[in-house]
């Protein structure tokens, strides 16, 4: 077993560009669900809105990348209105179904052939983020890779990470400030009991719309980083499973805690990548870890191949989500008392 390569995968991914994307998306979801109690199962729709707002500006409108960022935010705000106005008066579970349906609608729409000139349909939009990478301070002649201990990144990824974690820090700061303010107190009151908040004169609908917009825009930023890091906007990147992964990230870290999206994203990606690297290494080395007798049987019994490693990854993900909800709904580091997920 090549443990070094497994550890490198684990540590690198734990802080890598994927973790940035999921941390941001989960910060948004935390504002929605953790603080306001909005059951949003369509966070990936916001990611798509941000990503396509950026991509379409460059590809279809032929405008600059930087204007695209602004457009991405505007797309998210528009989506908030389209999504929020009809659904925010609904009961939580209806809202959940409506949001997942909306996010799937977005995916089906942008990948349809009729939109090819605007969204690139199923082929998507590629190589649109050059202006971002032109500013990369890590570019150097020769080798484009950096390594410190177990962390190994390409120059481009390092640049995305630098900007990405900075944006994450900024979003955390904003969330922290807002949630200690009277505005955040009203959100929490709405989460606990909307009627009580209304009886005290709080316009619950307006607050929910504001929270949806804020969390949505942060989700949109996540979508932008997702497409910037790969230089490619692909409609099928934005499928419902991504939303569920964001939920897992949030639950791992602990719902309604400021740091949970970051902690959750790091643990989630480290674990997922570590597991995958471990399994691949296991296959490559012919189950060396378990010795000849067990290894050979296990190999035949489990029928694990290079092709289905990623399926095992998702099985473990699904199971982890179940076990977490059952045994530690407050998250890995959360305490039961202040858990916001309880009696709802």
């Amino acid at each position: 077993m090549n443990w070094e390569s497994i550890l490198t995968q684990t540590f690198s991914q734990g802080f890598g560009t994927q973790a940035v994307v999921f941390a941001l998306a989960a910060i948004g979801l935390n504002i929605h669900f953790g603080y306001t109690g909005l059951l949003n199962f369509g966070q990936v729709g916001y990611m798509a809105a941000g990503a396509y707002g950026l991509g379409m500006t460059v590809y279809w409108l032929d405008q600059s990348f930087w204007l695209g960022i602004v457009m991405g935010i505007i797309y998210c705000l528009v989506l908030t209105l389209v999504l929020g106005i009809p659904t925010l008066r609904l009961r939580a579970d209806y809202l959940g179904i409506a949001t997942i349906a909306a996010s799937e609608s977005i995916r089906l729409f942008v990948r349809s052939r009729g939109q090819r000139t605007r969204t690139g349909a199923s082929e998507g939009i590629n190589d649109f983020a050059d202006p971002f990478f032109d500013l990369n301070i890590f570019n150097k002649p020769g080798s484009q890779s950096y390594r410190f201990f177990y962390w190994e990144y390409r120059a481009g990824d390092l640049w995305v990470m630098l900007i990405g974690w900075t944006v994450v820090a900024l979003c955390l700061l904003i969330t922290w400030q807002l949630m200690r303010s009277p505005w955040g107190r009203v959100l929490k009151a709405i989460r606990e009991d909307e009627d009580a908040a209304r009886a005290l004169g709080k316009n619950a609908y307006a607050y929910k719309l504001q929270a949806l917009a804020l969390g949505g825009v942060i989700g949109g930023l996540a979508g932008m980083f997702q497409v910037i890091r790969t230089q490619s906007v692909q409609p099928d990147t934005f499928n419902p499973t991504i939303t569920f992964m964001i939920w897992a990230v949030l639950i791992i870290g602990g719902v309604a805690r400021i740091w949970s999206p970051v902690v959750g994203a790091m643990i989630f990606w480290a674990a997922i990548s570590g597991l995958e690297a471990f399994l691949r290494e296991l296959i490559r080395s012919d189950w060396e870890l378990f010795g000849d007798t067990i290894g050979v049987h296990a190999e035949r019994f489990l029928n694990l191949t290079v092709q289905n490693v990623s399926q095992v990854k998702f099985m473990v993900f699904g199971m982890t989500l179940m076990l977490l909800m059952r045994f530690r709904p407050q998250g890995i580091f959360g305490s039961r008392e202040e858990m916001a997920l309880d009696d709802r």
Binding site: I174, Q177, L178, S181, P182, W183, G184, R185, V186, A189, A197, L200, G201, K202, Q210, L214
Partner: peptide, 18 residues
């Protein structure tokens, strides 16, 4: 504190500035 009226901090933008 939720019951109190006229709290400017209950506006999202003012909430950003303590």
């Amino acid at each position: 504190k939720l019951g109190a009226k006229d709290q400017p901090g209950e506006s999202m933008f003012k909430a950003l500035f303590s």
